[in-house]
């Protein structure tokens, strides 16, 4: 699977980003961010058709928890984990993520680590 990261993070981009049901997922994420009732109702219905009612609950939980995670991360000024920093350097710059204000919180030198599992990214 090849995922279009620029589509994933560009709120104006209306594509599937290379992920099954991606268009409905991204429209839902936008609607759940803005909370405009009619837009959200449409996005919920479209996503439920695409991934089912349990998938809709998973999507709702994901949006909710990441709204908390970003507040803890940015409110406490944590650094990006060194492994993630090393692994994401190329596309962070390309996507403009390095321009986010929170980028200033990370002064760690990226450490390239051999990856055998997800946990290695956070070592």
């Amino acid at each position: 699977m090849t995922i279009d990261l620029s589509a994933a993070i560009d709120a104006a981009c209306d594509s599937d980003a290379g992920v099954p049901a991606g268009r409905a997922l991204l429209r839902f994420a936008n609607a759940a961010h803005h909370l405009e009732p009619s837009e959200l109702a449409r996005a919920r219905a479209d996503l439920e058709r695409a991934v089912g009612p349990v998938g809709l609950d998973e999507a709702s939980a994901t949006v909710a928890v990441f709204n908390g995670l970003v507040r803890v991360a940015d409110g406490t000024g944590i650094e990006v984990d060194a492994g993630v920093l090393a692994d994401s350097a190329d596309f962070r710059a390309e996507l403009g993520v390095d321009g986010f204000a929170g980028a200033e919180n990370t002064t760690t030198t990226p450490v390239a680590v051999p990856r055998s599992s997800v946990s290695d990214l956070f070592a």
Partner: peptide, 12 residues
Amino acid sequence: LIAARTTALNEC
């Protein structure tokens, strides 16, 4: 994918 879009919308 949803996590990435949500995080980007919050400019995190």
